[in-house]
Simulated assay, not measured.
Amino acid sequence: MKRKNDYNKCGIYYTLNLISGKYKMSILYLLSINEIIRYNELKRMLVGISFKSLTKALKELEQDDLIIRTEYPQIPPKVEYSLSNKGKSLIPILNMMCKWGSDNREI
């Protein structure tokens, strides 16, 4: 039996650390639908997000190996984001969360 102080060693703790944040799950979901998205496209899709918040979320997702940032050496700079294999493995979980939310929210 796990003790209370072993929570930080639990898989759910790790998973929640990766996807916690106001926009991270939305970014992952949008990338699962669109496969490749540029920064400004993401900014338009995530209504209300600031440039600072989007940049921070993308950097954290990249550091956690959930997304891939591809920068093209051209002027003006072109940067695209896509899901990594690790990020793709989260999509079934996000889909189940989406279904649960649809089934259980009050309309």
Rank of each mutant, 00 (worst) to 15 (best):
G11R: 15
P92T: 03
S20D: 14
I68Y: 00
R69Q: 01
K2N: 10
P77L: 04
K9S: 13
S53A: 10
N95D: 13
C98I: 07
G48L: 05
G101H: 13
P73V: 09
S32C: 08
K22W: 07
R105S: 14
D65L: 08
I27F: 00
S32M: 02
R3K: 15
I67P: 01
S32V: 02
S89P: 06
A57H: 00
L90C: 02
T55D: 07
K24Q: 08
E60Y: 07
K78A: 13
R3T: 13
K88E: 07
R44H: 11
L46N: 04
P73L: 11
R44Q: 12
K78Q: 14
I91P: 04
R69I: 02
R44M: 10
K4V: 12
G101Q: 10
L18Y: 09
D103S: 11
F51G: 13
Y14S: 07
L54F: 02
K86W: 04
L28A: 02
K9L: 15
N95T: 10
N95K: 14
K43D: 01
R3W: 14
F51Q: 15
E106G: 07
Y14H: 12
L58Q: 04
Q74K: 15
I27D: 04
L30Q: 06
G21I: 01
Y72W: 09
N34I: 05
L58W: 00
D65S: 14
R105L: 15
L83Q: 02
R69S: 06
G11N: 14
C10W: 14
K56R: 12
G101V: 00
L18Q: 06
R44L: 03
T15Y: 10
I27V: 03
E60C: 07
S89F: 08
I67H: 00
V47E: 13
K56P: 02
D6E: 09
T15V: 11
R44A: 09
S20M: 13
K99A: 09
K2P: 08
N104I: 07
T15H: 09
N104F: 10
D6I: 02
L16H: 11
R44I: 08
I75A: 12
I27C: 04
S53Y: 05
Y7F: 13
S20E: 15
T15S: 11
D64H: 10
Y23D: 06
L66D: 00
K43Y: 01
M25D: 03
G101N: 12
Y39N: 00
R69T: 03
K4I: 14
I37M: 10
N40M: 11
W100V: 07
K59H: 12
L54D: 02
G101L: 10
Y72L: 05
Y23E: 06
M1K: 12
L66G: 01
S26C: 11
E35G: 04
K99L: 13
N5R: 15
L94W: 06
I67F: 07
K86F: 09
Q63N: 14
R44G: 03
K4G: 11
F51V: 14
E35I: 08
Y7P: 04
S50R: 05
L30V: 07
L46S: 04
S89R: 14
M1S: 15
S84H: 02
L16Q: 13
K88I: 04
